[in-house]
């Protein structure tokens, strides 16, 4: 008997190919549990797909915007964002780590000028995508646990 582990959704966003174990982090980055208290969100962890294990997040009635996709790219660089309307995939976007990450990651250096009241956004230069390595444009600190620094 065929058993559907996660039901298809009518409208919304499916984030596929999240590295296994990172689904909750994706939700945290999106801040969706607070911003959409009535939305139905399904999470599948360690799903066995063609390319090994992965996590999947399905958010009903919410289409992700581009700047949110950028945020996800930092912890799930190979994720795909599927926009669903009336059970059909109408748009499929690949997330890509941009050359520069502006206003998304906080610099871990407490003495960095970007952690003061100056009128600037945090800015990181992407040094490598695989593995992801970024460097603060201002103080040149290279943070290790990037996902914990997402604002």
């Amino acid at each position: 008997m065929k058993e559907l582990k996660v039901q298809p959704i009518k409208d919304g966003t499916v984030i596929d190919h999240i590295p296994p174990g990172n689904a909750f982090k994706v939700l945290k980055i999106l801040g969706i549990t607070e911003s959409l208290p009535d939305s139905v969100i399904s999470i599948a962890i360690n799903v066995v797909g063609k390319r090994g294990k992965k996590d999947i997040v399905k958010i009903e009635n919410r289409e992700l915007k581009a700047e949110e996709v950028d945020k996800i790219a930092l912890i799930a660089p190979n994720a795909t964002i599927n926009i669903i309307r009336n059970y059909e995939v109408v748009e499929k976007r690949r997330v890509e780590v941009p050359d520069e990450i502006v206003g998304i990651v906080k610099c871990p250096n407490p003495n960095c000028i970007s952690n003061t009241k100056e009128p600037i956004k945090t800015r990181f230069i992407v040094k490598s995508r695989q593995p992801l390595k970024i460097k603060c444009y201002y103080c040149e600190r290279e943070p290790e646990d990037i996902s914990s620094l997402i604002m």
Binding site: N109, C112, E118, Y137, Y138
Partner: peptide, 13 residues
């Protein structure tokens, strides 16, 4: 000279 790292880079902007 400024006590914060990156201050000169920001000033240049």
């Amino acid at each position: 000279r400024h006590p914060k790292e990156g201050s000169a880079r920001m000033a240049a902007k």
